[in-house]
Design a protein around this nucleic acid. Structure first.
Lengths: 209, 209
DNA sequence: AACAAAAGTTGCGGGTACGCAAGTTTGCGC
DNA sequence: GCGCAAACTTGCGTACCCGCAACTTTTGTT
């Protein structure tokens, strides 16, 4: 059901995408970012360099995708799994849940990302990927009152996540020169999302009338 | 005071930037987008190709900048000019005012932009430029209660503008090749911004206590 | 089983983007 | 005025990105 296009073809595509992600991250961790050519990643994944660009439109995308893969869909699912609380709470909790690193699996990857400005930017921009899935799930909750509202709310939530991630990966002047992941990401996310709560709840109120 | 760095140097930089914008737009209108090289724009503006990329990081940026130049600062000023109405109303009216094309000066430019996907995307992305000026002016209205709130609200407003622009430049169902600008941009902007009004006003309420 | 259409991969070619280091211009204190 | 430091420009070299057209693989139909 969730796999709309079933079949061997889609399977291979996902496998290739994952192979590229993994190869990109592994090579970047092993050699450092500037010692990894797109050609290297493609070769390690067993495809041509041209094919690499059919999957990722920049070198950084593949690396950050290894960390953020599938997160977007999980956020939407986590919102859908909270039908009994208000929209604002459902969204906030779903996001906090999914953006909180469950394990240490990617800790070194995150250190690499935070150390490199180009990767930081790409990482922060991944917040935009939640927009479409989130808009869909919000639209389902609100009903078909207005086509624009879910998109605007989802885009705003994505923007708030971007602000939080930006603050998180920023080597904060306050703490020190050392790149410590500043503050708790859950707290940053809650703080960034809280100004949007009135908008989310107001939309829900209007929809339920 | 607004011209932080005064002097001949800054003057020349702005002149170069404007020359590049104008050259890019003029050439694109004269020859069509794909018959304009970055080298051509640089030559027409009297600088080296390398210098072009010191000012704009993509070919499309220069062209859309000719239409959107300075808009961001004007939006912030227009918000500041409305201290007597609620924050939501001030923001919405300021944006509608500044995004409503005052003249026909750029009508043909907008037709070019809407016709080309790459330019459409670059144009829609210019909405992000209002974020920082808008965050500043919102922060001034709210006081220094919370550093995150103004940024989140500004980012959300920028996201809403992006949604509205996206809907505006989208070639409507009538696909005779001719792109009719679908709907009224002011109406689209009001519709996209209205879901954020509760968030803006709630932030202001909290700040005034 | 065979075939045609749809989808994906690949090499090629040309344009774009940017780090770097050398050269030039501007700002500013003396 | 003088000269130095900072800022800007430029050429070069390298890598990236993507349209295109030819080729291969998968899918669905008869």
């Amino acid at each position: 059901m969730t796999t709309r296009r079933t079949g061997l073809r889609e399977q291979k595509k996902q496998a290739t995408r994952e192979a590229l992600r993994e190869a990109a991250l592994r090579l970047a961790l092993e050699r450092g970012l500037e010692n990894v050519r797109v050609d290297d990643i493609a070769e390690a994944a067993g495809v041509s360099p041209r094919t690499y660009n059919n999957y990722f439109s920049s070198r950084e995308q593949a690396i950050v995708a290894a960390v953020t893969a599938e997160r977007e869909a999980r956020v939407a699912a986590a919102v859908a799994a909270r039908p009994d609380v208000g929209l604002a709470e459902a969204v906030v909790e779903a996001i906090v849940e999914q953006y909180t690193d469950p394990g240490e699996s990617h800790r070194d990857a995150l250190l690499l990302i935070t150390a490199r400005p180009a990767l930081r930017e790409a990482f922060v921009e991944t917040a935009g990927a939640v927009e479409h899935p989130l808009a869909d799930v919000i639209a389902r909750r609100l009903g078909d009152t207005d086509a624009h509202t879910p998109r605007v709310l989802a885009a705003s939530v994505a923007a708030a996540i971007r602000v939080a991630l930006h603050a998180w990966v920023q080597p904060s002047a306050a703490t020190s020169g050392l790149v410590v992941l500043s503050g708790s990401l859950p707290d940053l996310l809650r703080a960034a999302l809280s100004p949007l709560a009135p908008a989310l709840d107001a939309a829900e109120q209007r929809a339920q009338q």
